[in-house]
Amino acid sequence: MTQDGYYAVQLNSIEIPGEFDISFLTRTSNLKAGNIIFDSGTVMTMLDTDVVDELVRELTDFVSLPTEKPVAPHFKLCFAVRSTEQEEELPALWFGFNGQSGNLRVGPDKLFVWVSRFVKCLVITGTNDKVQVFGHITQQNFLVGHDLEKMELSIIEKDCTKLHEP
């Protein structure tokens, strides 16, 4: 549903199946419909601070790589990554939405960015605002469609570097 120029959807959970599941069903939002907006103009994904704290705890327990001190306050979790094999230990997350979007798998290439030669940081940060945002790094290589007549959001994984090839 559109609200204040944004498209709000209902995010129900973030999980690694069989490992952890963080529920959003009891969280409050200032949005009238849904609890998160998709905004390609916002760099990082911003979620409720309590959710991010829980996500950081779960990822720290799940990933066997050593953590590094975040290089900037907006990064809440960073890992030391010194090889391709170690980089492959960074997980994907499943975002559970209502409706057609269903469960969206977001790969580690859209969740962690290089901040120095051997450090990758999570691009999900906390906010105390009651509006959460699915930012553009997390949306990379997804074709996001907004059907304003049906009030639906569609998300399709797509190699966006090949959109204009014949």
Rank of each mutant, 00 (worst) to 15 (best):
T125A: 11
P73E: 15
L93M: 13
M151Q: 12
L77D: 12
T49R: 05
V81L: 13
V52T: 08
V43A: 13
I124F: 01
T125N: 04
F62Q: 11
D159H: 05
L55W: 05
S116N: 10
K76W: 07
D39R: 01
F118C: 08
N98W: 01
V113M: 10
D147A: 01
S154N: 05
F95P: 01
N141L: 08
D39C: 04
P108V: 09
G41A: 05
A92P: 03
E87D: 15
N103W: 06
I155P: 00
R57D: 15
E88R: 14
L143S: 10
T125D: 10
C78L: 14
V133F: 00
E85S: 13
T60Y: 05
F75P: 08
D159G: 06
V119M: 12
C160A: 07
E58A: 11
E58Q: 09
S64W: 00
V51T: 12
T67C: 01
A80G: 09
P73H: 10
T67H: 00
I156L: 11
L59H: 01
H146M: 09
L148E: 06
T125C: 05
G99A: 11
D159W: 02
N128S: 13
N103R: 12
E87K: 15
V131I: 14
F142T: 02
G145Q: 09
V115F: 00
T60I: 06
P66M: 02
D109H: 08
D109R: 10
D48N: 08
Q100T: 04
K150E: 13
F118D: 15
G126E: 02
A92Q: 09
W94Y: 14
F38A: 12
S101G: 07
K130D: 13
V56E: 02
K150V: 04
T42W: 01
D39S: 04
Q139A: 10
Q140V: 02
V115D: 05
L90H: 07
V71A: 12
